[in-house]
Design a protein around this nucleic acid. Sequence first.
DNA 1: AGTGTTTATCGTCAGGCAGACGACTATGAT
DNA 2: ATCATAGTCGTCTGCCTGACGATAAACACT
Lengths: 252, 252
Amino acid sequence: MPYDPSAFPPFAVTVDLVVLTVRRHALCALAVRRGEPPFQGRWALPGGFVRADEDLSQAAARELEEETGLTAHDPAVPAQDNGAHLEQLATYGDPKRDPRMRVVSVAHLALAPDLPAPRAGGDASNARWAPVEELLQRGGYGRDGEPVAPLAFDHAQILADGVERARSKIEYSSLATAFCPPEFTVGELRRVYEAVWAVALDPRNFHRKVTGTPGFLVPTGGTTTRQGGRPAQLFRAGGATLLNPPMLRPEV
Amino acid sequence: MPYDPSAFPPFAVTVDLVVLTVRRHALCALAVRRGEPPFQGRWALPGGFVRADEDLSQAAARELEEETGLTAHDPAVPAQDNGAHLEQLATYGDPKRDPRMRVVSVAHLALAPDLPAPRAGGDASNARWAPVEELLQRGGYGRDGEPVAPLAFDHAQILADGVERARSKIEYSSLATAFCPPEFTVGELRRVYEAVWAVALDPRNFHRKVTGTPGFLVPTGGTTTRQGGRPAQLFRAGGATLLNPPMLRPEV
DNA sequence: AGTGTTTATCGTCAGGCAGACGACTATGAT
DNA sequence: ATCATAGTCGTCTGCCTGACGATAAACACT
């Protein structure tokens, strides 16, 4: 049977990005302000159309670079010096999710260390890091009392799914190091877990756990005192990607 | 800015299904024979185009029903009497994955109890359950010595991802019960784990573990002797979806 | 009826890991 | 010098797991 273009409806395919980082002890996501309808002026996740000759992961990496300057970290390369972790999250294709046309969005999740400032086409006022709690509360008020509109489209759902993925994945993988600079202390890594899970962890048990998990951390030999207090050993992420035994999120 | 159709390239969007079940102590997947080019005569995963007014999950449930007669089990309904578990797996969009045109496929994973026989448009010879090892070996020989061609398109990769998802997800969720009939014994559940993980488990420790995990199993009061040997208690799946503590896959 | 086989179920024991928490160390601030 | 802060090392107890012995209840033989 020959190829029949009438056999299927045409779709637009986009990638949307949930870019997470830890700033000031809080899990934050990158949001951009929409400059055009629909949802003009509302905050949304960064994203864009997949080009005709692009793979989905390429499109996600390109959008990430355009919005943040970050280079996606190739999982095949163990030396993850700079560059963010990037993975596919899920795909959203409700027929009514975009009022203009049928759009299927392949959401991706990116985890990055704390960054200086976002950039959205050079206009800083149209991009910001916001605590995920603030972005997810619908119709509430932000930290400064300014009313907060819900995210555009179904982006609140996408963000919630991305946050949940990150929260569960740092349990059994070494992904929490993606939130840290290339060299970091056990305390900094602990503050990542505390921010992502929004819990308090015992510093002594945490230290025993992460230093005792083979392949998780490798000492670099240096020390730092940038947190105040006694100088702490510096570590890099080890080769292990799966933690065995896993980190355990405290009970509710 | 008005809607500009030239701003994005058109895509075809499909759903492909990884339908897994346990037959004769082996993890098996549903494969259908392609009746038209490309890859005519080769085995592939079932799937089809998403319709213009369909959500992705609706399309996956429709394809599942067309291929197997199974009704997808709505996760919101706790009484999962009949019907398979269905969840989104991942999305595959390499520009060259279909030689005809640009196709983005949203793969879904379905888990079902052992079924009588597949149906593919009423033609049984064009659909079969095959052990996943057989489908995943590229260019090898099947059980009966017949040469086996690799799956069409990138379906080997999709199947491998689905199998890996199932293998890891039965660790920390009660999803293994989706492979069982509505009522089952601890031994039958253990054989599911053994088939999916391809390991042998200690019956005594397994029994202690699953009966001790709150919410995993609820006894129905009945017993059965269909496995031979001493009669075994019958259970239904409990309300718990997340197992705490998880089942542990034995070390490699 | 007795014996063996199969599967289910209960118990015991030792090792490992996690949570709670005490103690000590090394820096900067006052 | 003293205090505050953060890091690091130990101890103890309870729980979970893997290894494995023992018993129970069916069926298939002889």
